[in-house]
Amino acid sequence: MKNYLAEIVGTFILVAFGTGVVVVDQQTDAEVTLVGIALVWGLVVYAIISAIGDVSGAHVNPSVTVTLWASGRFPGAQVAPYIVCQLIGAVLGSVMVRVLFPDADSLGGTAPSGGLMQSFLAEVLLTFLLLFVVLNVSEGAKEKGITAGIAIGGVITLEVLFGGPISGASMNPARSFGPALVGGDWTAYWIYVAGPILGGLLAAPLAILLRSDNKPEKPSTES
């Protein structure tokens, strides 16, 4: 059960700090800047991987969980419980942001800045890169260690800088779910479910092919 609790806590931290800094930027007339927002996202991901990577794998993202399952690294029986825990953590994170900023017009949610297809394709591309890196630096179903934390945190920073102005650079259905539910704004939410899941599933076979000479890793069954 500790892995489920870790996913709730990890996703709570991710959403509270990640979307929280977006709200801070909005309320301070962009003093944080896009670079600052990207750094916060990258650093909080690094911190989460360092803290709970050896407990739950620090997925904190349904697209990560689904892709690890599709890659044969994660047991199917744990996919749904992990995703439920991630959604719970995301909602709690958004509730915290609402408590901290009761007058905020937005809770740092994601919405397309241009066309729907542009944002959808951006989410597919961004998540493809993220999961390609995750699959190549993680051990089995777990993202742990300094290398994984730096690599994945660095990719998150890069992708927020690149995709933030386009789609909000979610790459994570749970990250978008929390602000949408608590804030009541479901604008084009399908993009932030379909895009990340598709991007991750596209990364899975490529990562498997590139590592086909390595010994297959058994799915983690820790609880």
Rank of each mutant, 00 (worst) to 15 (best):
K218P: 00
N136G: 10
V84K: 05
E139R: 14
K215Y: 11
V95W: 05
S212Q: 13
I156T: 08
H59E: 07
L129N: 05
G163K: 01
V9G: 03
P81E: 12
L125E: 06
Q86L: 04
G199R: 01
I191H: 03
G93Y: 00
I146H: 10
L68R: 04
R211K: 15
I83R: 02
C85L: 03
A51K: 01
I13W: 07
G108R: 06
I37L: 07
I156D: 06
L198P: 00
S138W: 00
L210P: 07
G76C: 08
F128M: 04
Y192S: 00
V137S: 02
S113E: 14
L161R: 06
T33F: 09
I48M: 12
P196H: 03
H59P: 03
V137N: 06
W190S: 06
V35L: 15
L202Q: 04
V24A: 11
I48F: 12
E222V: 11
D185R: 09
I49L: 10
A169T: 11
V133K: 05
Y189H: 14
W186N: 04
A180Q: 06
K2I: 15
G93W: 00
I166C: 09
L121W: 12
T65N: 05
Y82C: 01
V134T: 11
R73L: 13
Q118D: 15
R98L: 11
V32T: 09
I150K: 09
S63G: 08
E143S: 13
L43W: 09
G183M: 12
A148Q: 11
S220K: 00
A111C: 06
F101I: 04
F132G: 03
S56N: 09
L130G: 04
G76A: 11
L202Y: 06
E143F: 07
S113Y: 13
E217D: 11
S170P: 08
L198H: 01
Q27F: 04
T127G: 05
I37P: 02
V182K: 05
V66S: 00
A188L: 04
D213L: 09
I13L: 14
E143D: 08
Q86K: 06
G145E: 09
I156C: 01
S170L: 04
I197S: 01
E159S: 07
G200S: 06
R73H: 08
L158C: 13
N172A: 10
F101R: 05
R98Y: 08
W186V: 03
A203C: 12
V64A: 08
K218C: 03
V124Q: 01
I197M: 13
G164L: 03
A207S: 15
